[in-house]
C-alpha cells in the first residue's frame, strides 16, 4: 500500500500503518547515522582482510598484516628480557655477597627469587616460607645446614639426601628403636634428657638416666651440650625451634625411627642464575646470616 498522507503536526509522511487509530510516521534514521553505519561495514570488511578474522576448521585467516596478539606478547617478552639482561649478566658474574650489597641487583634478585620460590618451593615450605612439620621455616634464625648466602645456595642447588646428586647434603641419624640400638626405656630416658636441655623435662630421674645415654649415642652429632652441628645437619636440641615437634611423644618417635627429610637438588632443574636469586630471596626473609 502506498500512502502520501502527511501528518499535519510534523509534516512527516505516514507509513500507512494504523494501530488503534494511531498512525505510524515514516521517520527515517538520521542520515549521519546511516552513513556511520555504512562506514562501519566498510571498516569491518577492511578489518577482516587486514587482521585475523574468520575461523576455519583447523586454523584462521591470518590477515594480510600478519598481526597476532601472541607475536605481540613475544615481542614484549623479548623486550622485557632485554631490559633485564644487564641485571642478569651482573648476577651471573658477581658473588652472592656482592649482589646482596648492590641495591638494584638485590631488589632484582629478590623479585626474581620470589617468583621462582612461588613456582618451585611453596609446595613444601609454604607461600609465606613458614614451612610445616618436617619442612623447615625459612623465616627464622635456625638453619640445619647453615644460613649464610653460600650455604643456602648449596642447599638449594644440591638438595638434601637427594640420591641423584653426588654433592647432596647427607647425614643419617640412626633409628635407635627400629634398629634395636636402644631399648624402649632407654629411649624414654634419652627423650627426657633431651627435653631437659630446654627445661621441659617432667621426670628428673629419667632425665638423669638419659644423660649418659645421650653422651654415648647422641653427642657425637648433636654435641655435648645439644647445640647441634651444621656440618652434619644436626639440629640444636636446646632452642625453641623443633622441626617435627617438641612434645615427648614426637621426640621418642624421632629417636626410635629417625627422620630423613629429603629436598630435591634444584641445580638439576633450575639455571644457576635462578638458584642465586632464590638464595638471595630466602636469605632476605629475615633469618639470613
Amino acid at each position: 500500500m502506498t500512502s502520501t498522507e502527511r501528518d499535519p503536526v510534523s509534516g512527516t509522511e505516514t507509513t500507512g500503518h494504523v494501530w488503534d487509530g494511531i498512525k505510524e510516521l515514516n521517520t527515517p534514521l538520521p542520515r549521519w547515522w546511516i552513513r556511520t553505519f555504512y562506514v562501519t561495514i566498510i571498516w569491518a570488511v577492511g578489518y577482516c582482510i587486514a587482521y585475523p578474522a574468520v575461523p576455519l576448521i583447523n586454523s584462521v585467516t591470518n590477515g594480510v598484516l600478519g598481526y597476532s596478539s601472541r607475536a605481540e606478547v613475544a615481542v614484549e617478552l623479548t623486550k622485557a628480557k632485554a631490559a633485564q639482561q644487564k641485571y642478569r649478566d651482573k648476577i651471573a658474574k658477581l658473588s652472592l655477597a656482592e649482589i646482596r650489597k648492590d641495591k638494584d641487583l638485590f631488589q632484582f634478585a629478590v623479585a626474581g627469587g620470589r617468583s621462582a620460590y612461588a613456582v618451585n618451593c611453596v609446595q613444601c615450605h609454604g607461600s609465606g616460607a613458614v614451612g610445616s612439620t618436617g619442612y623447615p621455616n625459612l623465616n627464622d634464625d635456625e638453619w640445619l645446614w647453615g644460613g649464610n648466602l653460600e650455604q643456602i645456595a648449596i642447599t638449594i642447588a644440591h638438595g638434601i639426601r637427594f640420591d641423584e646428586d653426588e654433592d647432596t647434603r647427607i647425614s643419617e641419624m640412626p633409628a635407635f628403636g627400629s634398629d634395636e640400638i636402644l631399648t624402649s626405656p632407654q629411649i624414654n630416658d634419652t627423650a627426657e634428657y633431651v627435653l631437659s636441655l630446654s627445661s621441659k623435662s617432667t621426670d628428673g630421674i629419667a632425665a638423669r638416666n638419659g644423660k649418659t645415654l645421650y653422651a654415648e649415642n647422641c653427642a657425637p652429632c648433636h654435641g655435648e651440650t645439644g647445640a647441634g652441628n651444621r656440618e652434619l645437619g644436626a639440629p640444636s636440641l636446646r632452642d625453641a625451634i623443633w622441626l617435627y615437634g617438641s612434645d615427648k611423644k614426637t621426640i621418642v618417635e624421632t629417636i626410635s625411627k629417625s627422620r630423613k627429610g629429603v629436598m630435591p637438588a634444584w641445580g638439576q632443574r633450575l639455571d644457576p642464575l635462578t638458584i642465586k636469586q632464590l638464595a638471595v630471596y630466602v636469605h632476605s626473609l629475615g633469618g639470613g646470616e
Binding site: V130, N137, D140, A240
Partner: peptide, 17 residues
C-alpha cells in the same frame, strides 16, 4: 605481615614483620 604473622626464633623470642 600476614604470611607469616609471626616467626619463632631459636631463643624463643617472637618476631613480627
Amino acid at each position: 605481615d600476614r604470611n607469616p604473622v609471626f616467626v619463632r626464633l631459636s631463643d624463643g623470642s617472637i618476631r613480627n614483620g
